[in-house]
Amino acid sequence: MPAKAVDAINGGLLAHLVTIDPDGSPYVRCVWTYAEVDSLMIGSMSLDKRYIRNLQRDPRVSISYESGVIDDHGLAEYLVAEGHAEVLGDGGGRVLLNRLGAAYIGPDADFLADPAVGEGHRIRVRLTKVTGVGAWLA
């Protein structure tokens, strides 16, 4: 993934995560993500969520973002990342979500900072394809 896209995503762009339900239909959920060149990280506080169960059964995902920029044709610039997700068993969801709170809520956010909330879980998406339209893909 290009550095401009990593920076934009880590600046607080909301992600639309698509997983696959047991009947083969898509399931879409908005999530916060942290981007790296070759992967995306997602935090979750519970394994008892539909998208987590979907990932444990079928790890294929698509994640979309809009940059907030409208191009000369009136269309929003976008990025779509595809890959395979893995629910990590090392905790870390609370720490990741608290860190992401600064980008999504504000620099002084204290989101899930209380350790009594629990550790949660992290999901790593190893990217296989990144497509889209916009200067952030240059």
Score class of each variant (00 low, 15 high):
E82Y: 07
L75E: 14
L127Q: 08
A102I: 00
L13C: 03
R94D: 05
C30I: 03
I123L: 09
Q56C: 08
G106R: 13
V18E: 10
G92H: 01
A81K: 09
L88E: 11
L75D: 14
N10G: 07
S39Y: 13
G101C: 11
G68H: 07
K4M: 02
G89Y: 01
I52H: 05
S39W: 03
G11W: 04
L14S: 10
A5V: 04
R50N: 10
D90P: 03
Y104L: 02
A103D: 08
N54L: 07
V133E: 07
T131Q: 12
R99E: 15
V37L: 08
A85W: 12
G134L: 04
T128I: 00
T19I: 04
E82C: 01
G93R: 11
P26N: 09
M45Q: 06
A3E: 15
A85N: 08
S62L: 12
R60W: 01
L127K: 12
R122D: 01
F111S: 04
A15F: 00
V31I: 14
L40V: 05
R126T: 14
V117D: 05
V18D: 00
A8C: 02
N98K: 02
R94C: 09
I52R: 06
L17M: 08
L17V: 06
G24Q: 02
D110I: 03
R53A: 11
E66R: 07
G106K: 06
G93A: 06
D38Y: 01
G92E: 03
K129C: 01
T128E: 12
N54C: 06
A81N: 08
D38K: 05
R122V: 10
I70M: 11
S44V: 11
E36Y: 09
G93F: 10
Y34H: 15
P22K: 05
V61M: 09
G134S: 08
S39Q: 13
I70H: 11
S64F: 01
M41L: 15
A116E: 14
T128R: 06
M45I: 04
G24C: 05
S44G: 01
A76Q: 11
L13P: 02
D72Y: 00
D7I: 00
